[in-house]
Write a protein that binds this DNA or RNA. Structure first.
Length: 271
DNA sequence: AGTGCGGCCTGTCCGC
DNA sequence: TGCGGACAGGCCGCAC
């Protein structure tokens, strides 16, 4: 499940093969992703040059002169660079072929991802415009989070996973960051003090930064034929570690369901 | 406006 | 060993 570091790692992995290249063809094998891939995408982008390979939240987008190809990996999506010699697999839904004959290929078994088109400015897209700040931007700080949390009854975990508040904090890093900040995931967002928000913001930034860095160092080859390109083993403190001793105090890690998502935490360390 | 939940989809895992 | 069912989960869109 690609979290923000994997998405950024993917962006960096594909960028060298796409930057400045002209799109020569688009082959769609399966339109029905989370939202249908636009029927007219090939005709809109053929002949266009890729000016930038960008990321906003967990969306990767290819900036062209007339608009943007938006790609989301959902739960199970992955991108790879291949050539025409590589036969597409069962879940390889779309190929974007560039002038160098390289192919950007999206694989997504669960089809929770999407490929969309936004003419003109990316920020005009209805999925992009309501998004909160990037977690690594200076605009995301304790003061901001504290004010957004004010008077809200939802849990602090729900708050930081809300992309309208801050983007890029997925289920794994939400648990990890709350553990580092020693905040109980069930705590009401509005009851977290400014000082503790400071710790939380720092934890989120540190966790994401470390993972992106690790992704960068373990990133080898986006043209790999098998495996999950650009993905990397993560060092996790609580996520998926139910019953294992807490790294700080030894108490067994607890798991419960929150908003239909698994949360992991230490009931002794996190208050 | 904020909150909570349904739904999309398939690989993996567990129990029988 | 094989099969079926539960589970996982990003995140929008809707109902309240």
């Amino acid at each position: 499940m690609p979290e923000l570091p994997e998405v950024e790692t993917s962006r960096r992995g594909i960028e060298p093969y796409l930057y400045g290249k002209k799109i020569s063809d688009v082959i769609i094998r399966e339109h029905s992703l989370r939202w249908p891939i636009p029927e007219d995408l090939p005709s809109l982008v053929k002949g266009q040059k890729i000016r930038e390979v960008c990321r906003r939240a967990k969306y990767i987008y290819l900036k062209l002169d007339n608009g943007n190809i938006i790609i989301h990996l959902g739960m199970s999506g992955s991108l790879r660079i291949c050539t025409g010699k590589t036969a597409p697999g069962k879940h390889d839904h779309i190929d974007i072929i560039v002038s160098s004959k390289k192919i950007l290929r999206l694989r997504d078994p669960r089809k929770f991802g999407c490929v969309l088109w936004q003419p003109g400015d990316i920020n005009d897209h209805k999925l992009i415009s309501p998004l909160g700040p990037e977690p690594l931007d200076d605009a995301f700080d304790a003061g901001y989070l504290h004010s957004r949390a004010s008077k809200r009854s939802c849990s602090i975990k729900t708050l930081i996973m809300n992309s309208h508040i801050v983007v890029g904090v997925g289920n794994i890093y939400a648990s990890e960051s709350l553990f580092k900040a020693r905040i109980n995931p069930k705590r009401k967002a509005g009851s977290v003090s400014l000082v503790r928000m400071e710790k939380l913001v720092t934890a989120i930034k540190t966790t994401l930064r470390d993972s992106i860095e690790q992704g960068g160092t373990t990133l080898k080859d986006f043209t790999a034929e098998d495996g999950q390109p650009g993905y990397f083993a993560q060092k996790l403190l609580v996520y998926g570690l139910t019953g294992e001793p807490c790294s700080a105090c030894g108490e067994p890690i607890k798991q419960f369901t929150q908003q239909a998502r698994s949360t992991f935490y230490c009931s002794r360390c996190q208050r």
